[in-house]
């Protein structure tokens, strides 16, 4: 499943351009803060409309300014792990995990709830509320929620930035296993070169944006 991105997005006065192709494995978007990495992730997910260009996933156009194609987020098949996680505070961990599963066609499903819990080591958290979770636990639940949605592509926005050493290693190992065992293509946003070095098959650098 290859992802082709050639877009320009506007964030306020700033124009952010991104052009890259991601095949299997992990493609890292590396750049200083303010370079627009999150904007690119949002554009791929369908949460931010680019001003021009196109985004294709597995040959299907998700966005194409010239052909006036702009699929809504729910039709893009992209799982997103947001930097601020965005777990639903009014739902239990179980309900958070299963939120997207009911929308996923059975052909798109990667794994069951039990498999996901075992994979991420979160089986004993199911009855808890998100606000009672530690940073590392919440991060793994957010990854599980995105996986259970049956994505064709996983977008990870700074998944390690809020974690300390040991937890960071734990989540990094999870990301490696998603890459190696599930073979799910991922786009990973990071501003830390060492993370990118360990995880990524390919690095795309986003530099300071141009003024529009």
């Amino acid at each position: 499943m290859s992802l082709e991105v050639d877009i320009a997005v506007l964030r306020g006065e700033r124009r952010i351009a991104a052009c890259f192709t991601a095949r299997g494995g992990i493609t890292a978007l590396l750049g200083p803060s303010g370079a627009g990495k999150t904007s690119v992730i949002e554009a791929i997910a369908g949460l931010l409309r680019p001003v021009e260009g196109r985004i294709e996933l597995g040959g299907e156009a998700l966005f194409d300014a010239a052909r006036r194609i702009d699929l809504p987020p729910e039709a893009r098949g992209c799982g997103v792990v947001f930097q601020d996680l965005r777990l639903f505070p009014h739902r239990s961990v179980r309900d958070n995990l299963l939120y997207g599963a009911r929308f996923a066609p059975s052909s798109a499903r990667l794994m069951t709830l039990e498999q996901t819990c075992a994979f991420l080591g979160i089986a004993d958290l199911l009855g808890r509320r998100p606000r009672t979770l530690s940073g590392g636990e919440a991060q793994r639940v957010a990854i599980g929620r995105a996986l259970l949605r049956g994505p064709r592509l996983l977008l990870l926005d700074e998944p390690l930035s809020s974690l300390d050493g040991a937890r960071r290693d734990g989540v990094m190992a999870v990301i490696e296993r998603i890459r190696d065992e599930l073979g799910l293509p991922m786009v990973l946003v990071s501003h830390r070169a060492e993370e990118v070095e360990r995880l990524a098959n390919r690095v795309v650098r986003l530099d300071q944006p141009l003024l529009a």
Partner: peptide, 27 residues
């Protein structure tokens, strides 16, 4: 209610009304 939660629901496959009914309304 953080509108970004509704955006998260959309990326999980919920249409705009479904996201509204399952996230914004209960919150």
């Amino acid at each position: 209610v953080d509108p970004r939660l509704e955006a998260a629901a959309r990326t999980l496959g919920a249409g705009p009304w479904r996201a509204f009914a399952t996230v914004t309304l209960p919150l």
